[in-house]
Amino acid sequence: MPCLKWFLWLMMTCGNSAAWATEPLPWIRVSNDGKGFVEVETGKPFVPWGVNYDHDETGRLLEGYWDAEWDAVEGDFAEIRELGANAVRIHLQFGKFMEAIDRPNEAALRQLDRLVKLAEENRLYLDLTGLACYHKQDVPAWYDELDEAQRWAAQATFWRAVAGRVKESPAIFCLDLMNEPVVPGGKRADKDWLGPAFAGKHFVQVITLDQAGRPRPAIAKLWIDRLVVAIREVNDRHLITVGLVDWSLDRPGLTSGFVPSKVSDKLDFLCVHLYAEKGKVDEALKTLEGFQIGKPVVIEEMFPLKCSPRELDEFVERSRPLAAGWFSFYWGKEPARLKGSDQFVDALLLQWLDVFQQRGAKLRGMP
């Protein structure tokens, strides 16, 4: 974003630097029409325009460096703000936050306190996604050995600890129960709770190993309801959602079992991870339509992985009647360094970040 536009945005948003530094972030709730989000006190619309901060440029997960390299986290949050984002999706690893089925890790919770404060200082809202097991080698052996009921109990303990810890902060946009949960059909003979790896990380996770004759959406709903109840025991204010794969719809072929219309009673809004493909923007929009069940829908993951940056921008523009917010990705490599790289992926990312900034300005109503 040109410097002048960035300066004007700061002035419009903050008024003056002192007010920006001291004025608390507004709390966010679902709008009365159920289509989007608004500030609680003023009713002013709030549109999440954010990034997933799921790992750094080398692939390290946040908990792997946020103790020894806090300055890197501070720098990344400042860069995210400068890109024009107003929200950051954070992925909390179960193995780093739980020492036993009934014992959270206090040191990790203290570092989460620090992260929330950093978000407040940068006026960035957090989408806290929990229960992640992205690096298989970091998943506790005791956790994998639990049966379904015990595993759900451990997950409920995780969420009581995290949700209770952050309950006083308006900087929490939402609590996302899990990234890309799936109810498998039948019984998993391999007893593996994780889906296949992608780029060395396991983003998909199953919530049961045995369907045991139960309808898959019924299992998904029971799991969601169990965790929402656990959160509401300690936190009755923050919005709750879950990050769904785009193949969650009830249609022929591959489906996750998390059918939006059948599992979402206790969720405040829906999230879908949707990567538009080259020449298939219409198909992506059709999928997005399937998530319209009378609650706001946030596209929680998008990236020009299978299409060009400009085509993804077209998807964002055309999805505006259907989506209440969007999250892309940022891995700590700012545009200035991307410009000096001879790597194709860096050139693509640089092009996308430029589009991301321009689109964010349009969403904020800037010229």
Rank of each mutant, 00 (worst) to 15 (best):
L4Y: 10
G15I: 04
G15W: 06
E23V: 04
G34H: 05
F46E: 08
G50W: 00
N52H: 02
D54H: 15
H55T: 14
L61M: 15
G75L: 00
E82N: 12
Q93T: 04
G95I: 07
E99C: 08
R110N: 11
D113T: 05
E121L: 08
R123W: 02
D127N: 13
D127V: 09
L131E: 04
C133L: 11
Y134I: 04
Y134Q: 13
V139H: 14
P140E: 04
A141H: 12
A141Q: 14
T157R: 14
F173Y: 05
P184F: 03
G186K: 03
G195C: 08
P196T: 02
F198H: 12
V204T: 13
I207R: 02
A212L: 02
R214F: 01
P217F: 06
A218P: 09
D225S: 07
R232T: 01
N235D: 14
N235C: 11
H238M: 08
H238Q: 13
T241M: 03
D246H: 15
W247S: 10
P252G: 15
P252F: 12
G253H: 08
G253K: 10
P260R: 07
C271M: 15
Y275W: 03
K278G: 03
K280P: 00
E283D: 15
G290E: 05
Q292G: 05
I293C: 09
I293P: 00
E301G: 07
P304D: 04
C307L: 07
E314F: 06
E317F: 11
S319M: 01
A323M: 02
G325W: 01
F327C: 08
F327K: 05
G332H: 05
L349M: 11
Q351T: 11
L353F: 12
F356M: 12
Q357A: 11
A361C: 11
K362I: 06
